[in-house]
C-alpha cells in the first residue's frame, strides 16, 4: 500500500506502523462518573467496519508523525490522510 503523507508525499506503507481505530484519540476523562465504563469501551470495543475506517498509522521509518488514514477495509482504497495532531485538536484535544 501507499500512504500519501500530508508532509512527505507518497510513502510505502511498510515505513509505517499500524495502531488501530482513530477513536483511540478520544481518550476518556479519567475523573468522569463513568470512567471505568468509558475506558473499557475505549480500550476494548471497536466498530470494526467493513468499509470506510479511520485509523492511526505512525511513520516510524520517517518523520515520526502519527497520521489518521481514512481507508476502506474491503478494498484498501485510501481516501484521506491527515496529521493525527490536527485531527486530535479538531476533536477538542489540547493539553
Amino acid at each position: 500500500m501507499i500512504i500519501h503523507h500530508p508532509l512527505l508525499g507518497p510513502r510505502d506503507a511498510a515505513e509505517f506502523v499500524y495502531l488501530g481505530d482513530a477513536a483511540l484519540i478520544d481518550r476518556p476523562d479519567w475523573q468522569a462518573e463513568n470512567a471505568a465504563e468509558a475506558f473499557h469501551a475505549y480500550g476494548y470495543l471497536r466498530d470494526n467496519p467493513a468499509g470506510v475506517h479511520q485509523e492511526l498509522w505512525y511513520h516510524e521509518q520517517g518523520d515520526r508523525s502519527w497520521l489518521v488514514v481514512t481507508r476502506n477495509t474491503v478494498n484498501h482504497e485510501i481516501s484521506r490522510v491527515e496529521l493525527a495532531r490536527d485531527v486530535a485538536r479538531a476533536r477538542g484535544r489540547g493539553r
Partner: peptide, 18 residues
C-alpha cells in the same frame, strides 16, 4: 472473520478487529 459485520446487525460492538 465476519463477527464484526454480523454482530453489527444486532447492534453490538465487539472487542474484536478483523
Amino acid at each position: 472473520g465476519s463477527s464484526g459485520r454480523v454482530m453489527a446487525l444486532a447492534g453490538m460492538r465487539l472487542p474484536i478487529e478483523s
